[in-house]
Design a protein around this nucleic acid. Structure first.
Length: 207
DNA sequence: ATCAAGATTACCT
DNA sequence: GGTAATCTTGATA
């Protein structure tokens, strides 16, 4: 696993990365490596699709209604993971951005998985051996990411500057490979072009 | 106490 | 393309 060894040598993104506005953080998160350390495994995923949310002007952001028990983590200073439960079925993970009380975050929508494929497959489909089609289906959506990477309630509020979950720097994605469009699955503020993805990546949920 | 809606997914025609 | 699944939250009474 030369690739994995090389990746692990990269530097962890520091606090200043997350303190910026959500649009900038969203775009810059593309290509970075999401890391989740577990007891016996270290799971790696390249971030290939994200969406920015900003409670100040964005009616679809959870933080738009103000601070509540559910969205409180979104109002913390940038650099935390905000995890919420939705549709009675799925968890979704966000990176909190900006200063305290801004209520801004970036939804992680799709990863390209880089290792531990059998573990991811077990969690998603209950089996180790999967078809090529199922492989693409491992992490090509926000709920799928959380199921495959084992992210749920307990990870809500987790610091990305700690040892358990963090994001590694990586080579910059060239501007001509980045697509910016409107967001998916929302009913309000649908005109805002706050979704970003890597154009040629097969794990992008929808193009 | 009740209720509607939800930053989704899987499965159906 | 349509829709059921499934449950938590926030709003209203």
């Amino acid at each position: 696993m030369e690739l994995v060894k090389e990746i692990i040598r990269s530097e962890k993104l520091g606090k200043s990365f997350y303190l910026r506005d959500p649009l900038t953080v969203a775009r810059d998160l593309l290509g970075k490596i999401f890391v989740k350390k577990e007891k016996n495994n270290i799971l790696l995923g390249r971030i290939v699709e994200v969406e920015a949310y900003d409670g100040a002007i964005d009616e679809s952001a959870h933080s738009y209604i103000g601070k509540t028990k559910r969205n409180a983590v979104m109002f913390e200073e940038g650099g935390l993971l905000y995890v919420y439960f939705t549709y009675g079925v799925h968890f979704c993970a966000n990176v909190v951005t900006g200063k305290k009380d801004e209520g801004t975050a970036v939804l992680l929508r799709a990863f390209e998985p880089l290792n531990n494929f059998e573990l991811l497959a077990q969690r998603r489909f209950g089996k180790k051996d999967i078809t090529l089609k199922e492989k693409i289906n491992l992490t090509n959506g926000p709920g799928k990411i959380c199921q495959a990477f084992g992210i749920s309630r307990e990870e809500n509020g987790e610091s990305l500057l700690g040892d358990k979950i963090y994001i590694l720097d990586s080579v910059e994605v060239p501007e001509n490979k980045i697509v910016q469009t409107t967001r998916i699955g929302i009913k309000k503020s649908t005109e805002l072009p706050w979704r970003f993805y890597i154009s040629d990546n097969p794990y992008v949920s929808r193009k």
